[in-house]
Design a protein around this nucleic acid. Structure first.
Lengths: 204, 204
DNA sequence: GGTATTATTATACGCTTGAATAATAGCGAC
DNA sequence: GTCGCTATTATTCAAGCGTATAATAATACC
């Protein structure tokens, strides 16, 4: 009776691989297709190992959701440069790959559908959403100020809600039916729309 | 051994109840929590009955998705009156209950997350999406024409994409965090945003 | 009112699920 | 080297899954 030989992964690495495998499975097979066994296969280990790294499958899934939120927001929050450039990059990043692709929305939707069911996911969601919208709100405040149109918090809030909605909506359209749009079309529509909403040019 | 007494439902009624129960369960417990047994309990029948009305659970779920799409689009497509009124109503309907509530988005997200997995759902989705956007595109064409700004199909298309994105995005924001907005705030933001996008007043 | 039809219940089956447990292979310390 | 620790495998388990089947209660029909 000889067992499989295996590799003993260093600190944290296996954990990360398991989370990545979880996300792969959810995006490919849906939440209910992402079984412990399937995830283990994807990660190249046996099913029992999951419980060595996580208290339960549910906890692993929750941590996977944290990773999704992080990957969706971190790029957008780290834009640099003058306000116009940051706003422009924020929009472009969110509407091009890898943020805008069918894998992203599959994951996002799978988790959103669980937010009502699972309080743990609900909290992760709310934190992520607020961080995202606050980042956008700040961005808009800076941009308006830099263009001689300083706006109070209430006005910024309304702009942030509208533009967040616009970007989210276009993101979804792009993810779900990317082939219906020409290369760069969504970004171009978003840019023109934001300019119309704010009454200011973004690109000089 | 006496069996439960029961009611023999007339033509089609039980079927409808089962679909409704399926949606209730999906929104409450998620796709994987919506088991045949749970759905049967919700519908007030026993599990075996499902297979009397549907070839499989999957088929029942697919029909349930058809019902969701229909309920999300039918109200929006049946707006009446002059172009401005229709556009206004279209926006308002999509951003107030019952279209905009947490049950709707739970259902929508649950199915969207399966679109990549299940080709049957993918087809239902695409048909529904195109019908929705085409309805909006036509609405916009009429509105622009009525306001002395007749637009070609390409221009209408771009407006439709942007406004569809905006409405979808705000719908999601409202569904997921309705308590973060004041009564009527989303509709008001949407109205103002669409006016800014089109450069035309909707309300006189 | 008896009879045929069928919608519904009740029960059972084979499979998959997440989890628990015991055995063991890899690897660093000495 | 070999010893000790633990990450990993292998195996098992009970519960729950979708489905199949047979018995039966409700209704329509004559």
């Amino acid at each position: 009776m000889n067992r499989r030989s295996f590799y003993r992964a260093p600190e944290g690495e296996r954990r990360q691989e398991l989370i990545e495998a979880t996300l792969d499975c959810i995006s490919e097979f849906g939440l209910k297709g992402a079984t412990v066994r399937q995830i283990a296969v994807r990660a190249g280990v046996t099913a029992g190992l999951v419980r060595h790294y996580f208290e339960s499958k549910d906890q692993m899934v929750a941590e996977a959701y944290r990773a999704v939120i992080a990957s969706l927001t971190e790029k957008a929050k780290n834009v640099e440069g003058d306000p116009a450039t940051r706003l422009k990059d924020f929009i472009a990043i969110n509407l091009t790959e890898p943020v805008a692709d069918s894998r992203s929305i599959s994951l996002w939707a799978a988790f959103i559908s669980q937010v009502r069911v699972d309080p743990v996911l609900a909290e992760i969601h709310r934190d992520g959403y607020l961080a995202f919208r606050n980042a956008l709100q700040e961005l808009l405040g800076d941009f308006l100020a830099a263009n001689g149109r300083p706006a109070g918090p209430e006005e910024c809030r309304r702009y942030a809600i509208a533009i967040n909605g616009l970007v989210d909506g276009l993101w979804i359209e792009g993810c779900l039916a990317g082939d219906l749009f020409r290369e760069g079309e969504l970004v171009s529509i978003a840019m023109a729309s934001v300019e119309a909403l704010l009454g200011l040019r973004i690109e000089k």
